[in-house]
Design a protein around this nucleic acid. Sequence first.
RNA 1: GGCGGCAUAGCCAAGUGGUAAGGCAGAGGUCUGCAAAACCUCCAUUCCCCAGUUCGAAUCUGGGUGCCGCCUCCA
Length: 464
Amino acid sequence: MKINLYNTLTRQKEAFKPIRGNQVGLYTCGPTVYNYAHIGNLRTYIFEDILKRVLVYNGYDVKHIMNITDVGHLTGDRDMGEDKLEAGARREGKTAWEIAEFYTKAFQSDLEKLNILDPTTWCKATDTIPEQIALIQELEEKGFTYRTSDGIYFDTSKFPGYTKLSHQDLDALQEGARVERNPEKRNSTDFALWKFSPEDVRRQMEWESPWGIGFPGWHIECSAMSMTYLGDQLDIHAGGTDHIDVHHTNEIAQSEAATGKRFFNFWMHGAFLIIAGGKKMAKSEGNFLTLDGSFTERGIDPLVYRFAAFLTHYRKPMEYSEEAVAAARNGLAHLRNQVRAIREKSGGRTGTVDTGSKDRFLSEINDDLNMPRAMAAVQEMLKSNLPPADKLATILDFEKVLGLELDRVDDTEGLPPEVLEKVDARNKARADKNWALSDQIRDELQAMGFVVQDTKDGTTVFPS
RNA sequence: GGCGGCAUAGCCAAGUGGUAAGGCAGAGGUCUGCAAAACCUCCAUUCCCCAGUUCGAAUCUGGGUGCCGCCUCCA
């Protein structure tokens, strides 16, 4: 079935077609590892996970690269300010390398909790320094660079299609620029490819280069890594919407200037998470929420957040609130209970995937990843007249895309002995019609974290 | 100031010309000793406001109002 994806380059949905046969090269911008990811960041990775799962579900062989930016990303603007990693190191009294390692692990742990599939290859900016240097050299040979007192810069005026992604009017943009100019830059949009280490300060992360000791600029690593790992399989590049105007625009400029070839056919961007009051989530806004802080540590399944993310289309700002969490929490619990009930009705047997429901589901996810509609399709399937065994097979098939652990089977055999004893005692009390004792035991079990359900076939108990 | 986006029920949210998906919350019912869970039913004559185009508009056009994002580190 055809997949339509919204391409920022053309500002419209386009039929997706890989460059080479059945293979898809997917590059997703990973984090700069100087701090924890907040749940707004994670929304984008959930969107990218759905993108990948949808491609796989459609039968494509996806080669997915995600980078870890562990050097070169500056705290200031316009290529000024301090390296975020070095700043983080000073803040926490560790080395920049330790900072990168620590926050990379924390990030990967978040992805795992959200059931986000690992990329085919993780790559670190610091592992591709030679490739980045080679790319800069190529740009230098072709006359796209110039040298200032603090680094090697890309001259954006020499690349004709500079605004093809952002669609911005550069003249107007310059007039409105609110930031301090770097006086040595020829154009305000020019950006650093290589920065020299300061003469008086020894950086923790620095490398030899043809231009002197220093470190790479923020944008060059993504170009080098995508070309290194994907070669000519540059199909889809995804990231957050904030990257359109600067980061991705610069990536395209430097890559296409160097190779003379088109750099990625599809550019996809996820919208921000906003909190009540309508502000985006950012450290500077003072509303930095982490997955662990908002979910794991409060005893809420992190997949509740994944479920919540499905209820808003990825290109639209998503509102986050305690109310939204509660709604998603109930919604996911309900969905899992529905699956549980269906499994009981079918006696645990799975039938065949219903083609009509699958076609409906496919048409929704293949229409620019319309998860809100896909979730509606899921509900309609579950409430249909299909035989339970077929419903079970169908929902488990959808689960390949959803990744909500709907197939998680509660291990009733693994219940602790003290729970089983209480269940026995309660069953006896119920047989004696001693409702007071029965209710008391049920309260005790609930306090222990178990749900008690009486059905006509007996009592079932499972962790809540 | 420039560019872009959004405004749909109590809340979240699909829907881009043919008469308002879905979720959460709420109400009633079936089941149950009572619950819980599940299931069934109900829940926007109406889509920010005003004008226009059209047989027909939440969807198109013009104007207005409000909110947000990017342009500056940022998913």
